[in-house]
Design a protein around this nucleic acid. Structure first.
Length: 272
DNA sequence: AGGTTGACCTGGACGC
DNA sequence: TGCGTCCAGGTCAACC
């Protein structure tokens, strides 16, 4: 499900519902692949802590915690993978298949992590400055720094956009949508993109991400926010999952090609 | 060192 | 109805 706009929507809705709540008890499924930290590492960090803030960093959801009145030295990090959902529910709500974590809150609600494909990850993070993510934030980077990020690389621009160590937060949908709006083919080498095109791509990416955040993200199959509500940006998709359908601008059929193992959608006439 | 591929998972859609 | 194939919002380790 989750790229920057979806993760931001989940983090914000989770913050609204759970900020200030105290965690009384936690439970984790017996699925070691989902736990980047062990249950034994996470339990003492979470139990008895108060949720100070929930926010997005890249594609990660960061829980800032309080121990009494003091900031905890540890943060709880949730990565939704492909199909992860982080929900606030009443305790009597049916426990769905593939539930991997339940946090019981003092206010009576529960935070639940549900993830059928188990590509999601739960972990504890400890460091001086807190969790900063693998790369740079696409929403705040300047056009100049954006172009600099990709300098000296020889890879399809699509692969570069998906590289979380450079920009973090951009995934398959928004990479395709930004490239379409900038008129650049996903197969183009980063080495042969002009300054003017970098500027255009930066602008297009920013615009697409902002608009998607405003619409609560894209619900393609099963993505929902912490309140179980779907996003609506999928109705604005111009290329993603529109293979063979006519381009909205020129009517040419949208093409699909696999780049870096991910299907990439583009207009063969509008994107060069 | 940087770039690409396949593995990790479940489940839904589609063809026969 | 069922079975086989392909595909899906993401990362990693293992190769070139």
């Amino acid at each position: 499900m989750p790229e920057l706009p979806e993760v931001e929507t989940v983090a914000n809705s989770m913050h609204r519902r759970a900020a200030g709540a105290r965690i009384e008890h936690v439970w984790f499924s017996n699925m070691p692949q989902t736990m980047r930290s062990t249950a034994a590492e996470m339990e003492p960090v979470l139990e008895g802590a108060t949720i100070e803030r929930v926010r997005r960093v890249g594609k990660h959801i960061v829980f800032d915690l309080l121990r009494g009145k003091k900031r905890s030295d540890a943060q709880w990090i949730v990565h939704l993978g492909m199909t992860g959902r982080l929900l606030v529910t009443k305790p009597e709500a049916e426990i769905e298949k593939h539930t991997h974590a339940i946090l019981k809150l003092r206010d009576g609600n529960e935070i639940r992590f549900v993830d059928p494909r188990r590509f999601g990850k739960l972990s504890v993070h400890r460091s001086e400055g807190g969790f900063t993510g693998p790369g740079v934030e696409p929403t705040t980077i300047t056009a100049k720094d954006f172009a600099k990020l990709f300098k000296g690389r020889r890879t399809p621009v699509k692969s570069a956009l998906l590289n979380q160590k450079l920009l973090h937060g951009v995934g398959n949908i928004y990479a395709d949508e930004a490239l379409n709006r900038a008129g650049i083919r996903p197969t183009r080498s980063t080495a042969r993109i002009t300054q003017a095109e970098w500027k255009k791509l930066h602008g297009a990416l920013l615009k697409v991400l902002k608009e998607a955040i405003k619409l609560g993200g894209s619900s393609v199959s099963d993505y929902v926010n912490a309140d179980g509500e779907e996003g609506t940006f999928q109705i604005r998709h111009r290329v993603y999952m529109r293979t063979g359908l006519p381009c909205f601008k020129c009517k040419a059929p949208i093409a699909r090609r696999v780049i870096a193992g991910r299907s990439s959608h583009y207009c063969p006439q509008c994107q060069h």
